[in-house]
Design a protein around this nucleic acid. Structure first.
Length: 554
RNA sequence: GGGCCUGUGGCUUAGCCUGGACAUAGCGCCGGGCUUCUAACCCGGAUGUCGGGGGUUCAAAUCCCCCCAGGCCCGCCA
């Protein structure tokens, strides 16, 4: 609906001014929309921008399609302020369940995220991938797309071979109470130490890799077994984070089913292909200087070959392919996109996020230097439980635990998703455990507050005619929600939703402190309750799209 | 050496793609607000060479060029 209004204004400006671009932008604090078209016309019309703006406003006010809207010239700016009819329309939609759902689409989307190597637990860097990916997934579903979310299981890598070697050759018993993925990390770290001491082990690891590629049943079974155990651990962590995948796709399947062989044969026929000891592509004409190796001299395939096969398969089954990958994948991601394009296959869209490091430096599973997501979850639940206990001592332990779990989840997810993905971040315990403003719990609190008012209010007659400045500001903030969802899926930037949800909570809190709801009477009470219902519903939809529980009490 | 990303008050951060009205907010700091709808809150104040320099433009945090600093990448690893 906001979109329709935008188009209407845009067309009106173009027709009135005769320009090709209406230069229409968000009006910020001044207006709902504003145009700077007067600046652009100043030179050609040889008139002052202020005069041009005044003349245009006079003409625009005559247009019937803009009636009900306040149009004014403020210096060279032309401001558009929506009328009450617009606000009423918005609120009618915003009180309905599923507000913000966009129209159903038929484009089938496949989204891959997390896909961490199964050689140790998910750490705070991996879950940046999970949370960006899962939030995008929720936004796509809200935007009406049929979507499948996949986890690509790298079960043939050197890391896994090292894990398998460790289990075969070291003291590898699982300790009591030790989670599967933590157990695997312990063996992986120990095995790497052995490799540093004795170079001969590398040969044994290479042998394991050859055996698995050739399909040696015993080796394949060992690899599958350890990888599965690690994934079981991941599933627990991801469930705690409210992150879900529809399908786990195993890398080795693309060897077994012949897809990798098929794509290699196809690549051989390309003009960019070169075959000496290895098979590689020369992509220098596209700006890539290094060789893009597809097959080793010993005949085994490399990761890139399997990845090409995987993406060709995705392209055959879906209309749009999106991958969420760490910034370290930028080069190979670009090479993959380039190669898919040359092959005439669908080109994946890739969302990159920069690294999360620790105050003491980069994280490394191999070196055992990382903060695991499980540790973070445990700590944050403890901290949240203490907080709930201090604030709500009257609640029984079970209720406090449930709230703490939701609050902890909110704190983690929001803390990660609120930052632009291209920003390098340093994990900070103090900040992660903060529940104040610009946090998930802050937004949950605003929601719980709205729920509390509605619960106390009981029945009321919905009224959509807002009057005071605070009411209208809040209603217009609510109006932006569907556009935010649209923007997230268009730009593939979920942090936009995080910012929006916080701003909506801010606006509601300000309203709450200035405009009494339950204490007002008659029509004023009805319309404010309607507004609270709309804001409660919009915050709820926002939180759920962020993968955060919209709890009714906290 | 080359490529990509980042650099915004003491700290963290939005805005940058699509240039425009006093640069967004949080933490911290100073001062206020709970016998009143949940104070995980609200209101007010101080704090900014938008990394540096050049350029384009009526107008630059935003576009272009150069430089500086940090991160990542440039493997017959994944």
């Amino acid at each position: 609906m906001l979109h329709d209004v935008y188009t209407t204004i845009e067309t009106a400006i173009k027709e009135t001014s005769g320009t090709a671009d209406a230069l229409l932008t968000d009006g910020g604090e001044h207006a709902d929309f504003a145009s700077t078209v007067a600046f652009a016309l100043a030179k050609q019309k040889k008139q002052a921008p202020v005069k041009i703006a005044q003349d245009l406003v006079a003409d625009l006010r005559k247009r019937p399609e803009l009636s009900g809207m306040t149009i004014e010239a403020k210096g060279p700016y032309i401001n558009f302020i929506f009328g009450n009819a617009y606000v009423s329309e918005v609120l009618k939609a915003a009180v309905q369940p599923g507000y913000g759902n966009l129209e159903k689409k038929t484009t089938r989307v496949v989204l891959e995220h997390t896909s961490a190597n199964p050689n140790g637990p998910l750490h705070v860097g991996h879950i940046r991938n999970s949370i960006i990916g899962d939030t995008l997934a929720r936004a796509f579903r809200k935007a009406g797309y049929p979507l499948e979310v996949q986890y690509y299981v790298n079960d043939m890598g050197r890391q896994i071979a090292i894990v398998v070697w460790g289990f075969d050759n070291l003291d590898s018993a699982q300790q009591t109470g030790e989670k599967e993925d933590a157990h695997i990390a312990r063996i992986y770290i120990a095995a790497n130490r052995e490799i540093e001491k004795d170079e001969g082990i590398t040969q044994q690891v290479n042998t394991l890799m050859q055996l698995v590629e050739n399909g040696d049943p015993a080796t394949v079974k060992k690899f599958r077994n350890e990888v599965s155990r690690c994934l079981d651990g991941f599933r627990v962590t991801m469930k705690d984070l409210n992150v879900a995948h529809d399908r786990f796709v195993w890398e080795s399947d693309f060897i077994r089913n012949g897809d990798t062989e098929r794509i290699i044969n196809k690549l051989k026929g390309m003009p960019q292909a070169h075959e000496d000891e290895t098979l590689y592509l020369d992509l220098s004409e596209f700006g890539f200087e290094n060789k893009y190796v597809i097959r080793r001299s010993d005949g085994t395939s490399v990761y890139a070959a399997r990845d090409l096969a995987f993406h060709a398969w995705k392209g055959a089954n879906f209309d749009r392919i999106i991958d969420v990958l760490g910034a370290d994948h930028k080069l190979i991601g670009a090479q993959l996109q380039c190669t898919m394009k040359i092959l005439g296959e669908k080109v994946p869209e890739i969302v990159y996020f920069e690294f999360v490091s620790l105050p003491e430096g980069s994280m490394s599973t191999r070196a055992g230097k990382f903060v695991s997501a499980d540790d973070l979850i445990t700590e944050i639940r403890k901290r949240a439980f203490d907080e709930v206990t201090a604030r709500r001592p009257e609640l029984d332990e079970e209720s406090r635990k449930a709230i703490a779990q939701s609050v902890g989840l909110a704190a983690i997810r929001y803390d990660i998703v609120k930052v632009s993905p291209e920003k390098n971040t340093i994990f900070d315990w103090k900040e992660a455990l903060d529940f104040e403003r610009q946090s998930g719990p802050y937004i949950q609190y605003a929601h719980a507050r709205a729920c509390s008012i509605l619960e106390k209010a009981g029945e009321f007659a919905e009224c959509y005619d807002m009057e005071t400045e605070q009411e209208i500001i809040l209603a217009k903030q609510i109006a932006k929600f569907p556009r935010v969802i649209e923007k997230v899926v268009t730009e593939l930037r979920p942090h936009i939703l995080a910012t929006y949800a916080r701003e909506l909570a801010d606006t509601f809190n300000t309203f709450y402190h200035f405009e009494p709801v339950l204490k007002s009477e008659g029509k004023i009470r009805d319309r404010r309750l309607t507004l609270v219902k709309a804001v409660q519903n919009t915050i709820k939809e926002s939180l759920e799209t962020l993968g955060i529980d919209a709890i009714r009490s906290m």
